[in-house]
């Protein structure tokens, strides 16, 4: 029995969960999929006095079509995101990314909201939220507010959520026609934490010029990192080899701030970022072009 002892609550409704969170405040931790929290408790890095288990909140497990955007409940399991047909149709970048999120055994439990609230800079899902322009809904008591993805992620394992707030819903605009996308990462083994990863989303106009681009990196700083200068350098440009090379160099040399780890030095991470930027942009371009011709 490794974790320190705690009191366990398993509310059946969001309102009950909010009441409990309000009562226990900082003493309590919310248990979603538990695939990061429980290891931390097993190591006793985390020793919450109270655990509020959200796994009975069926009302937070959904994928809803808003005709122009999808709303996903915070307790939707990662395995469902991987296979959901609405997500595959409207957010193919998310579908493409999911098999990279740990192993199937982990995705069977892990949730979208849990991963976002944990805000691990090596995680894929926060990167995708920035790349797709998500907004996130938090509830506290009877109040609710929407937070944009860049405002939500505050740094290492830190979000904008207040101690009495629960992340309940994530809204993602459809990836429309003319959008190209790609996600790639390099990990020592399939399912391991990646050494580097990149999501690229581009929007082409009728002439095939790039209207807008967004490049977002994992393990490249204290949170999911958007390379704004590199992304900006692509808008209005023909995405030829030289424009792609310039963006890759700007992002990998000037913008990302990798820490390095046991398996990769910061220099190697920059090298990976450079190479992955080129590859993701080329694939995104091919996909956007194909989309335009249809």
């Amino acid at each position: 029995m490794k974790p320190a002892s705690f009191d366990y609550h398993r509310p059946d409704t969001l309102d009950e969960a909010l009441t409990l969170l309000n009562r226990y405040g900082d003493e309590a931790k919310l248990l979603a999929g538990g695939q990061s929290l429980v290891p931390a408790m097993n190591f006793r890095v985390a020793q919450p006095a109270v655990l509020i288990d959200l796994n009975n909140l069926r009302e937070l497990d959904f994928v809803r079509d808003n005709n122009g955007s999808l709303s996903i409940g915070a307790m939707t399991r990662e395995r469902r995101l991987e296979f959901d047909p609405l997500i595959a149709r409207h957010l193919p970048l998310l579908t493409e990314t999911m098999p990279n999120v740990a192993h199937p055994q982990i995705r069977n439990r892990g949730t979208l909201g849990g991963s976002l609230a944990h805000a691990d800079p090596a995680a894929e899902l926060p990167v995708i939220m920035l790349a797709l322009g998500a907004r996130l809904k938090a509830r506290s008591g009877a109040a609710e507010r929407w937070i944009t993805a860049p405002d939500f992620f505050k740094g290492l394992f830190t979000t904008d959520l207040a101690p009495d707030e629960i992340l309940v819903e994530i809204e993602l605009p459809f990836m429309g026609a003319g959008t190209g996308w790609s996600f790639m990462e390099v990990a020592p083994r399939a399912g391991d934490y990646a050494l580097m990863g990149v999501a690229a989303v581009i929007q082409l106009d009728k002439e095939g010029k790039c209207q807008q681009a967004r490049l977002v990196y994992l393990n490249a700083g204290e949170g999911p990192l958007e390379a704004k200068a590199a992304s900006k350098s692509l808008s209005g440009a023909d995405l030829d080899d030289s424009a792609i090379e310039t963006a890759a160099r700007t992002a990998s040399q000037d913008e990302i701030q990798p820490f390095g780890n046991l398996h990769a030095s910061p220099d190697f991470q920059r090298h990976l970022a450079h190479e992955l930027t080129i590859r993701t942009l080329k694939l995104a371009l091919a996909r956007a072009g194909k989309d335009r011709l249809q």
Partner: peptide, 20 residues
């Protein structure tokens, strides 16, 4: 790894109370 409701999951990352 065990199967919870037919799906493989890590039994070291679940509390017994959650399987009620």
């Amino acid at each position: 790894t065990i199967q919870l409701d037919g799906e493989p999951v890590r039994s070291c990352l679940l509390f017994a109370v959650q399987t009620d």
